[in-house]
Structure formats: C-alpha cells, structure tokens
Amino acid sequence: MTAESPGSGAASRPATRRRGPELEQAIFDAVFQQLTTVGYGRLTMDSVAATAGTGKGSLYRRWPDKNALIVDALRASLPSPSDVPPQGDLRSDLLALLTRIRDALESSYGVTFQALKAEPGPGAGLVHQAVRERVFAPYRELFLAALARGAAKGEVDPAVLTTVVANAGPAMLIHRYFLEGAGIPDDFVVDVVDQVLLRMVRP
C-alpha cells in the first residue's frame, strides 16, 4: 500500500458535487472516522477523500498534507468563543464558559481526542496545538473579560486579572478529561468555579 492509498478503514462513497461548508463538514467527519478506525499513522489524504465521497483534489486545494487537515478538523470541533455571550454576573459567566468547554470535550469527537492524545508520534502534538489555539487563547480572553467586568463591580480583586488565573479553569477541565477520560460531571464544573476560581479572585 502506497503512502497515499486509502487505509483499510476507508468506506468509499461515490463522489458528490457538494461545495462550501457542506463539503468541508463531510471532509472533517471523514477525518474523525478515519482517526477512530485506523488511527493517525494509517490515515491518508486518499482515505479521507474516499470516506468523504469526494476527490482528493478537493483536499489538496485547501490542505497541503494530512497534518494541516487534522488540525483544522480538530479546531472546527472545539468550542467557538462566540457561542458563549456574557451571562450577567461573574459566577454565571465562569460556569457558562467552563460548561461550554466541557461539552465540547465530551462531544462525539471526544473519543478521537483521547485516541490521538494516547497515540505515540505527532498525534498528541496536533491535539495540543488545536486545544491551545482554539480553547486556551480565545477562552483566556473571555475569562479575562469576565473577571474585568467583575472587578468593575467590586466582585474581583484587580490584581488577579492575569493570564495565569484566566487559564486555571480550562486547564483543570482539560487535565481531568485527558487523565481520567470522558464523563466530567456538572458537580465538578461547579466545584471548579465555587471552590477554586471564585476563591482565587474575590477581593
């Protein structure tokens, strides 16, 4: 089997004329299917194209190699900051942000994240890159904004408006998820907010 021949887990479908977001979603779904069935090492651009029911030219026009494709698929599956508008008070803001991250980690793509994280080689690095770029960086800004609103109301010590504090909540969830697996209960999210974050930031 050549480096770009379809992996044994590819479920070939007739090519369709899908375009735009519909085609992109089909390609990303195929990436996750291939990662789950054959793993990072045996996933190829050919196997993804066959599973998505499109030509591999559609992939190469957007992604130079499978690593770039996998990173974009992981990014797309992670929570977008625009999905979490301000809730009106500090505790509700923190709960909403952490719940959104938890739900994304436990989505149907969570198994793929676990598999990639556990696989030796570049797989774990791709997970870290996607989580860092899509979760830690943008959500850190949302946490800082929530803390700043709390500081303006006298609920937060201005001295704690730091990236270290803003990273604490997401880091605890991601640490729990990758070390203990899926199944982060609501009680854990609430405890992170009430027993850790709020105690850290109160004047």
Rank of each mutant, 00 (worst) to 15 (best):
S8T: 15
G9Q: 13
G9C: 12
A11K: 13
S12K: 09
R13E: 11
A15H: 02
R17H: 06
R19V: 13
R19P: 00
R19K: 11
E22G: 04
E22H: 09
Q25I: 01
Q25D: 12
A26D: 06
A26W: 00
D29N: 13
D29K: 08
D29R: 15
Q34L: 13
G39S: 04
R42A: 15
L43H: 03
M45V: 13
D46S: 14
V48C: 06
V48W: 04
T54A: 07
G57C: 01
S58P: 00
L59T: 03
Y60M: 11
R61C: 07
W63M: 01
P64W: 08
D65V: 00
A68W: 02
A68P: 05
I70W: 02
I70S: 00
V71I: 09
V71D: 00
D72C: 02
A73T: 00
L74D: 01
S77E: 15
P81G: 01
D83S: 15
D83A: 15
V84S: 10
P86L: 03
Q87P: 04
G88D: 03
G88N: 12
L90N: 06
R91P: 04
D93A: 08
L95M: 04
T99V: 08
R100W: 08
R100L: 07
I101A: 05
E106N: 13
S108Y: 07
G110F: 01
V111S: 14
A115R: 14
A115I: 15
A115T: 15
L116C: 07
L116R: 01
K117N: 13
G121M: 02
G123P: 00
L126S: 02
L126G: 01
V127H: 09
V127A: 03
H128T: 14
H128I: 12
R132P: 03
R134E: 15
F136E: 15
P138V: 14
R140Y: 08
E141T: 13
E141Q: 14
F143R: 08
F143K: 06
L144V: 11
A145Q: 15
L147C: 09
R149Y: 08
G150N: 09
A151G: 06
A152E: 15
G154N: 06
G154C: 03
G154E: 10
E155W: 09
D157W: 11
A159M: 04
A159H: 12
V160I: 07
L161W: 05
V165F: 07
N167M: 10
A168R: 13
A168W: 10
P170H: 01
R176I: 02
F178R: 02
F178A: 06
I184C: 04
P185I: 02
D186G: 11
F188T: 08
V189Y: 04
V189I: 05
V189F: 00
D191R: 14
R202S: 10
